[in-house]
């Protein structure tokens, strides 16, 4: 009996360790690979309440109301610009008799953020009550910011461009080549443009825009400029460094884009795929 107890006391810590680590790894994997609704993220009400009140102190009383007016003004302008752009640029689309606005814009304030981790998120002060849903695009006045990840009733988290798993479809302005934007994992100011074939001429300083191929961002939203392009001997793709237009460390006001026809588009695309198989 005594030896059994001794044996147990030696073995229990190790199994506690294994068990808890197992729980942790399940959490990590779930959190990073699925758009699950989890309650332990910074959009959670308790966390967000503190962040909200803390960032409120920085709002300088009257300045914050003044800001709000400006932001709302911007919001309506942006809404007009986005819809206008789509309808005039793509003539075929404007002929499809789309009634009303295709894109809706909701403004929000950043109340918590990280910029120096490997997985950087923002928390914003708008949530499902304001019509925000996961996988909506987020932009700021200078350019693309990221994609909505988790939503609670009053808050939402944004997976930013400076997130190791962020991948956004992009297009080069001068050559119209498609690629994808990823973060370089080190510096919050720079990312990589991937999948540009080596036979293309890549001018330094060229602008990168969203491609409009996903149902998240409209096309022609500024992402950044090319600062460096290297072609290794024998490689079939370029190594392109892109400086993001958005300054993540000073980010304060953002706009969430709601593409109202997203469900219709996705449904059609899925039906087409199923028909092929």
């Amino acid at each position: 009996m005594h030896t059994l107890l001794q044996f147990l006391s030696r073995i229990i810590p190790f199994f506690t360790f294994l068990f808890l680590e197992l729980v942790c790894f399940i959490l990590i994997i779930n959190h990073h690979h699925y758009q699950r609704v989890s309650y332990l993220h910074s959009a959670n009400i308790v966390n967000a309440f503190f962040d909200n009140s803390l960032s409120g102190i920085g709002g300088y009383f009257q300045l914050s109301t003044e800001n709000e007016q400006l932001v709302n003004h911007n919001k309506s302008l942006l809404q007009a610009v986005l819809n206008n752009k789509v309808d005039t640029v793509n003539v075929e689309e404007s002929n499809t008799l789309v009634l009303g606005l295709k894109y809706e814009v909701e403004s929000a304030r950043v109340i918590n953020k990280t910029v120096n981790k490997q997985y950087n998120y923002l928390t914003i002060n708008k949530g499902s009550k304001d019509g925000i849903k996961p996988e909506m695009g987020v932009i700021a006045e200078n350019g693309v910011v990221g994609i909505i990840k988790n939503v609670s009733s009053n808050f939402a988290t944004v997976m930013t461009l400076i997130h190791k798993e962020s991948l956004i479809s992009a297009v080069m302005k001068s050559t119209n080549n498609f690629g994808s934007i990823q973060w370089n994992g080190v510096d919050a100011r720079f990312g990589k443009l991937k999948d540009i074939p080596a036979y293309v001429n890549v001018p330094i300083g060229d602008s990168i825009f969203t491609s409009g191929q996903s149902s998240i961002f409209p096309d022609k939203i500024f992402i950044g400029t090319i600062t460096n392009a290297i072609k290794e001997e024998g490689d079939s793709f370029y190594d392109i460094e892109v400086e993001f237009a958005t300054n993540f460390s000073t980010l304060k006001n953002i706009y969430v884009i709601n593409y109202k026809l997203k469900e219709e588009q996705l449904k059609l695309e899925n039906e087409t795929l199923e028909g092929v198989q």
């Binding site: 808890l20 729980v23 942790c24 790894f25 779930n30 332990l40 910074s42 997985y119």
Partner: peptide, 20 residues
């Protein structure tokens, strides 16, 4: 800590390791 910086599970696993 994880809930605050959206790294669910990562700090927890490191902390459990340290306690172990």
């Amino acid at each position: 800590v994880d809930a605050n910086v959206n790294t669910l599970g990562m700090h927890a696993s490191a902390a459990v390791f340290l306690a172990f």
